[in-house]
Design a protein around this nucleic acid. Structure first.
Length: 451
DNA sequence: TGCGGTTTAGG
DNA sequence: CTAAACCGC
């Protein structure tokens, strides 16, 4: 009898299971396997580990308790489980990036005659598939999006895991319970799992989609889709979302475009694995960053939300409180770190990856590189966000700042952004002069441009 | 998903 | 005269 393993990676996609199973003719018996990968877990941060555990518990419920969880190195454990259950094949969604490729090679080696079958990707179009006519990858977003849209994608699979015959062998060595939640202090996370994802999505489409294009940049409104964390963990597939936003209205088009950014950055990282840690555009390797004790102190003030720039501090405090930050504010805080504090983007990107529950290597690192001006299709070097005018524009009544900075709660309206009447309750003076540091950033970019 | 200087519409 | 539109960096 045919026995297969469905190896769930970090993406716990229930959505596409029937498709991948029918494609593989896995009607007989299947083991649902998740490997708690030491190396990935350590780098994830407590917030993402805990959210992952919650997703796993939900998945286990959906599979009637037959999810097999083991802990360790996939290169050892996947072949071991395959051998224990006499599997003929292992099915896993495609991965990318330096670690994913190395891990796949190691797993494949251990499997011997057992097939390792890639059964899809957590993207509308898998990384590497959208290419120019000459076969090279796109380096600019807009033409990528056009080609991505022309390429198209199949309809989402229907979720019905209950029709599958899941095996839950008890004698698998190292099988463990999903770990308990870690202590997150007062951090509040969204509900985990596929049901929560679909509920949030349906509520967004019914109530907020029409306002999306006009209001998604407003930090003070809950006007974004909040899908990032569910996409990250595969609680929902982007094709499921795309199937619901096929309209020609501006909001549907903008939402599709945001999903195209996600696919674009995955594609960029797929073709340039080094760009997870290094400047994609090498000419920026020569740029002068601040270092030493004063730089570390500034970095600490940024991380803790006490830079004296209200919109920046509000964002950094929201990040700690929710493991999430509004996208517009991510750009503002990132611009501040790179262009006002003259610190390298990877220091900020690391902090975001430590705390963001939706932290995704491709989107995070390339979002940062976009702001820093070092990435593919990056913002031009002369574009420097002014934290005060950005605050006035995207938090016009100051509600967002007051929500996250208690010291400023008694300041009325948009005056919280300028604080001309003073800084109450010990809220700090600005740690830098934005006008000066903007010119300093332009001068440093000018330097590397010269040669 | 800039900024700042210049042009121009409108009163 | 003001503010929005325009435009080069």
């Amino acid at each position: 009898m045919e026995t297969s393993i469905v190896w769930f990676r970090r993406d716990l996609r229930l959505t596409d299971l029937p498709t991948l199973l029918s494609a593989a003719d896995m009607s007989a018996r299947a083991v649902a396997l998740f490997v708690l990968d030491d190396r990935l877990l350590r780098s994830a941060g407590a917030v993402r580990r805990t959210f992952l555990y919650r997703c796993l518990r939900e998945l286990d419920d959906a599979l009637n308790g037959s999810l097999v969880v083991v802990e360790g190195d996939p290169a050892d454990l996947v072949p071991k489980v395959a051998s224990a259950v006499g599997a003929n094949s292992v099915h896993v969604s495609a991965d990318f990036g330096p670690y994913g490729a190395r891990r796949d090679a190691a797993v494949r080696k251990g499997l011997g005659d057992v097939d390792l079958v890639e059964t899809g990707s957590p993207y509308a179009v898998a990384p590497g598939r959208v290419r120019k006519d000459d076969g090279t990858p796109y380096k600019v977003f807009t033409p990528f999006r056009r080609a991505w849209y022309d390429h198209g994608w199949r309809a989402p699979a229907k979720t019905d895991a209950s029709t599958l015959k899941w095996l839950a062998p008890d004698d698998i060595e190292g099988r463990i319970q999903v770990p308990d939640d870690e202590d997150l202090g007062t951090t509040e996370l969204p509900a985990a799992g596929e049901a929560a994802a679909l509920e949030q999505w349906q509520s967004f489409v019914a109530n907020d989609l029409t306002r999306y294009d006009g209001e998604r940049n407003r930090a003070d409104l809950d006007s974004t889709s909040r899908m990032s964390v569910y996409l990250k963990y595969g609680c929902v597939h982007p094709r499921t979302l795309l199937a619901d936003v096929r309209g020609e209205d501006a909001s549907s088009a903008t939402l599709r475009s945001e999903l195209a950014w996600r696919d674009f950055y995955a594609d960029v990282l797929h073709h340039n694995p080094r760009s997870a840690r290094h400047n994609l555009d090498k000419k920026f390797d020569r740029i002068d960053y601040n270092t030493g004790a004063a730089a570390d102190e500034a970095f600490e003030a940024w991380r803790e939300g006490r830079t004296g720039f209200p919109i920046v501090d509000a964002g950094m405090r929201q990040l700690r409180a929710q493991g999430w930050m509004h996208n517009r504010v991510r750009m503002i805080t990132a611009s501040f770190l790179t262009k006002d504090l003259h610190l390298p983007w990877w220091r900020g990107a690391q902090h975001f990856m430590d705390l963001l529950v939706d932290g995704d290597l491709a989107s995070n690192q390339h979002g940062w590189q976009w702001t820093a001006g070092t990435g593919t299709d990056a913002a031009p070097y002369f574009r420097v966000f002014n934290p005060t005018t950005q605050g006035e524009k995207f938090d016009p009544d100051g509600e967002y700042v007051r929500r996250w900075i208690p010291e400023l709660r008694e300041v009325d309206g948009k005056a919280v952004h300028t604080l001309k009447a003073g800084r109450p309750n010990g809220y700090p003076e600005p740690i830098v002069d934005h006008k000066e540091e903007r010119l300093e950033a332009l001068a440093r970019y000018e330097q590397i441009k010269a040669r």
